[in-house]
Nucleic acid binder design. Sequence first.
RNA 1: GGCGGGGUAGCUCAGGUGGUUAGAGCGUCGGAUUCAUAACCCGAAGGUCACGGGUUCAACUCCCGUCCCCGCUACCA
Length: 683
Amino acid sequence: MNSTGNYKRHTVTAALPYANGPIHIGHLAGVYVPADIYVRYLRMKGEDVIYICGSDEHGVPITIKARQEGKTPQQVVDHYHSLIKDSFARFGISFDIYSRTSSPVHHETASEVFKTLYDKGAFTEKDSEQYYDAENNQFLADRYIMGTCPHCGYEKAYGDQCENCGTSLSPTDLISPRSVLSGNKPVMKKTRHWYLPLDKHEPMLRKWILESHKHDWKPNVYGQCKSWIDQGLQPRAVTRDLTWGVKLPLENTEGKVLYVWFDAPIGYISATREWGETHGRDWEKYWKDPESKLVHFIGKDNIVFHCIIFPVILNAEGSYILPDNVPANEFLNLEGDKISTSRNWAVWLHEYLDEFPGKEDVLRYVLCAAAPETKDNDFTWRDFQARNNNELLAIFGNFVNRTLVLTHKYFDGKVPEAGTLSASDEEALSSLGGFPEKIGQNIEQYRFREALAQMMNLARLGNRYLTEAEPWKIYKEDPERVKTVLNVCLQIVASMAVLSEPFLPHTAKKLQEMIALEKADWRGAGGSRLHPGHQINKAELLFEKIEDATIQAQVDKLLQTRKDNDAGREVEPQKEAVSFDDFTAMDMRVATILEAEKVPKTKKLLKMTVDSGIDKRTVVSGIAEYYKPEEVVGKKVVLLANLKPRKIKGIESHGMLLMAEDKDGSLAFLSPEKAFENGSTIS
RNA sequence: GGCGGGGUAGCUCAGGUGGUUAGAGCGUCGGAUUCAUAACCCGAAGGUCACGGGUUCAACUCCCGUCCCCGCUACCA
């Protein structure tokens, strides 16, 4: 089944990069490279396709970054938007438009969608109490509130998370909260928000995803959706109290904007609209005509937005189509560790382009060949080197070079005429004829690794054919035969020049110029494209060997990053001074753990009975990741005995066991050096 | 803990309504070759298909349980 056959046009979107950092190889391997291969292929087949992307520029993290850098949010997104846009262009990601959500057309589009849904009664309204900064006259996002972490006592915990102990919090958990803006204590104030009742759309989602896309969506995507739907969907707020974003198109809603997840996917639509307006094209049919095939390329972190929430918005709006597929990829790791923007553990696209000029396609090749299609995958520089040297260069580049060099050597660069075809010639040519279809099928099923491997098999076919035919041996006695052989080889090269284009666009262009191929259309790529007498140009090398030293330099760079991270992990700053009385208020005792068991349905909690010398009591502690119940029994530990009792997972915990925490977060008990009596005081 | 995805040769991955010797590429080893960027070509070695049970004439493929990795989620006084 050729799925493109049922559609008149294609709308392809790639996840909007968040404009608070540059693009790295994880983004590329997961989203932009596969999407780019997909659209380039469709274009070469003559399909009507638009490839849409842009920067996602709203949301709280950008306002925070702006504050930290003493800039306006607009300045922050301007910087990253141009950096991202520029590096995509240099890399050869062939968007029809790369727009941005801070653009007027987006604000207008997003407002319209909101307004339509509002008028249709698609939202529910709810009032709630939230922290408000009276001095600045604004409600405070979670990250705009700081306070003391109720868990570890860290005084600079944010309203959503304590960065000291990693606990996720809600603003009301914080002890003595203060506004990041004014430093004042925020007050609770009533605020109104609009919610999208996802639960009401469950029947539509069930039918659409669980029934009609059971077999054509990837297992990870389908499974995740099923899980969400089965667990029961909750209404989600679509508005926030913030000034940076798309303002609500309603009366008396000053200081409210669309929540970024509502506004961001609409960015695809706005970008399409902008494209339509600047190109004089009707953009709407790409989003509203059922004969348009909508495909979202995303990473796995985005599944819920693209498969549940955005479709609900589109469906509720009424005039839009739903995606035909959402081929989400897993994650790419780097040299064994998770890619991290904040830890600078990444290969940044703009840096790669500077450091490896002319090697865009090498990265495209490696990222496609090692794309995390079914599970997380690892990028290593050694692998990068091996794939360049042993595959691109040795197989692809080498076959092209052998063929062209021989053509120049024997026939002055003119395509020789094929004589009578032998069985092996016939076989090679017939095998060649199957490649466009084979590669295309894989691309249409989003199996880009396999498609790429097939493309390389074409070069292997050529190498094998050429080696077996041995024209350099027979040229003297049988030049006629050599004509045929090289004709066949040149047809294979011509096919490669076309079929490699979605994967290796720069290389394909170079190769097409080298053999003076005028038209690169997909369907004809399996047949004979070069006619006898056709003059080809000088052969140049398509790839060059990447030396150990080059790779070592990159590895060293990462090692340095790792070193910097370790060194940069500063020791916690000393807390504010406390009085001796504050200290003596704490009653710490030597205690012995008598019993221990895992708290059911938790990952971290151990319930223990300890002998404090004073009594035998229950303590619940989050140490199960580091200690098994049986190995803690009998241990002498330090107990903070007079901490107020607190229920954890329904169990009342009387006190807390003191732990030391390593920089990687692992925990260890504190124990007296000698086995003192239970109840011994600590001071 | 719950839910989802994954665990197949040194590495990256295919595979199958259950059915003779489990596939590919790269790496390794051997051979052949010189047109080619010491590349190509041929051949070989290499896997108890995470582990333990079960169903079956037959399981890597189905069922149950366990372990490990990733994501979402609950939990760290």
